[in-house]
Simulated scan of single mutants.
Amino acid sequence: MSAKPEDAKIKLPPQTAPADVLFAMRAFARTEDANCVAHKLASYIRLISSVINLERLDGVTVAYDYDAALAELDRGVEGLRTLARSNDDQLVGVAMSPAVLRDGKVKVHLVFSGAYIESIDATPEEDDAEAQSGMQQAIYLIAHECAHVQVTTEKDEAFPGTIFQKQVSSYEEQIFTQINEACWDEYAACRFSAPFGSGHLAYYEEGLRGVVGVARQKAAAARDGFWKHRDLNRIVGELGASMSEPLRMTAYTFGHIDGSNGDAEISQETRQAIEEAGYTEAIEKLVAQLRKLWDERGEWMFPSEFDVLGDVARELFYEEGLLITPNGEGANIQVWDPAMYDGPVAA
């Protein structure tokens, strides 16, 4: 006799989260609230660990003093830059998954802002759409940060001795390595966590439209400012950030799409915004390379395989009058006005 549908059971893969994960609950008004959130969060993380590899999870911090929690996190390595949340007109950080070193092994510690996690302990009524949405957003946030554990694990297994130990050889490499890592890490994390974020694509598309729509205007303003201050480091930061931010948001957007099993696609509104900003070719190149790197997971040989991501940004910089090329431990940086000249004329 065949089983009735209601009798069917789904067997999840084994949980991968360590049994002894420590939870630090900071600046909660009441101990009982901290305990409830910690127990509920631990349950969600263990469930997520059935589909996302959390073997390298170091611990979890939930803090109402989020900025202080980031600044005070012991990462096991001396001399690292103090962690700080993203905080600009496009993004305010509420969670982070930094790598840490414990007994010589690279792991990942999750840090959450308490204000964005507390809703997982709520029991909203079925007709309370706002509360239900808040809970779903919190669960997706947890899954996304958990996905970064697997992303970091895969990179450390592919390139052992690189994280925390390999020194960047030049200023030019540092610039483009940051872009490589930002694009790949967010693409892969979004692709792993997409099943937990149904409906979240709209938020990523909104962010992508926002940054791509102002990228070239910001780049032009940075270039205009350069002729007054003549600070090469400053224009790299200002023009480079404005032109590469749409690539990072593309990684979020298409990582989510590619992880949604064909159930999501980019909207015509976003396609039009990309085209109007002159980013269509760059984004097509970036997405193709991200997908190729994903398909080759487990077969990577060298970190330089990710340089194809930074090369997309390098071409965008050139379009806006900024050329960055290797020069020993530094970089050759040339700036010009693309409306007046075809190539570099000032350094």
Score class of each variant (00 low, 15 high):
His148Gln: 09
Gly197Asp: 05
Glu154Tyr: 09
Gly197Ser: 03
Lys155Ile: 13
Ala202Asp: 03
Phe176Gln: 01
Ala188Tyr: 13
Cys190Ala: 12
Ser193Cys: 08
Tyr204His: 04
Glu205Ile: 00
Gln165Val: 10
Glu205Ala: 00
Glu205Lys: 00
Glu181Asp: 14
Ala158Gln: 09
His148Leu: 05
Gly199Cys: 04
Ala158Phe: 06
Cys190Lys: 03
Gly207Tyr: 01
Glu206Ala: 15
Leu201Trp: 00
Ala194Met: 04
Gly197Met: 08
Ala189Lys: 01
Phe164Asp: 09
Gly161Asp: 03
Leu201Thr: 00
His148Ser: 05
Thr162Pro: 03
Tyr171His: 14
Trp184Asn: 02
Tyr203Ile: 13
Thr152Phe: 08
Ser198Thr: 15
Thr153Ser: 15
Ala194Asn: 05
Ser170Gln: 08
Val168Gly: 14
Ser169Arg: 13
Pro195Ile: 03
Thr177Asn: 10
Glu186Phe: 07
Asp185Lys: 06
Gln150Gly: 02
His148Trp: 04
Asp185Phe: 10
Lys155Asp: 07
Gly207Gln: 05
Glu181Thr: 09
Val168Met: 15
Ser170Trp: 06
Asn180Gly: 03
Gly199Trp: 07
Gln178Cys: 12
Thr152Glu: 11
Leu201Cys: 00
Glu206His: 14
Cys190Met: 08
Phe196Met: 08
Trp184Leu: 08
Asn180Ile: 03
Gln150Lys: 01
Thr152Ser: 13
Arg191His: 09
Gln165Tyr: 08
Ala182Trp: 08
Ala182Phe: 12
Phe164Lys: 05
Gln178Phe: 12
Val151Gln: 02
Glu186Met: 03
Ala182Met: 13
Leu208Gln: 03
Val151Leu: 07
Trp184His: 04
Asp185Tyr: 10
Phe192Trp: 08
Glu154Lys: 14
Ile163Leu: 10
Glu157Ile: 10
Thr153Lys: 12
Val168Asn: 13
Tyr203Ser: 15
Trp184Arg: 03
Arg209Ile: 01
Gly161Met: 05
Val151Asp: 06
Gly210Gln: 14
Ile163Glu: 11
Cys183Val: 08
Glu157Ser: 10
Glu181Cys: 03
Ser170Leu: 07
Gly197Ile: 04
Ala158Gly: 10
Ile163Ala: 10
Arg191Gly: 01
Ala202Phe: 07
Ala189Pro: 02
Phe176Ile: 01
Phe176Cys: 06
Arg191Asp: 01
Cys183His: 04
Pro160Val: 09
Glu173Lys: 09
Gly199Ile: 03
Lys155Gln: 14
Glu186Thr: 11
Phe192Val: 00
Val149Ser: 09
Ala182Tyr: 11
Gly207Met: 05
Pro195Phe: 00
Ala189Glu: 00
Lys166Thr: 10
His200Tyr: 12
Phe176Thr: 02
Phe159Arg: 12
Gln165Cys: 09
Val151Phe: 03
Ile175Gly: 03
Thr152Trp: 06
Lys166Ile: 05
Val168Phe: 14
Ile175Thr: 10
Lys155Trp: 13
Ser169Pro: 11
Ile175Arg: 09
Gly207Arg: 03
His148Phe: 04
Phe159Ser: 07
Ala147Ser: 10
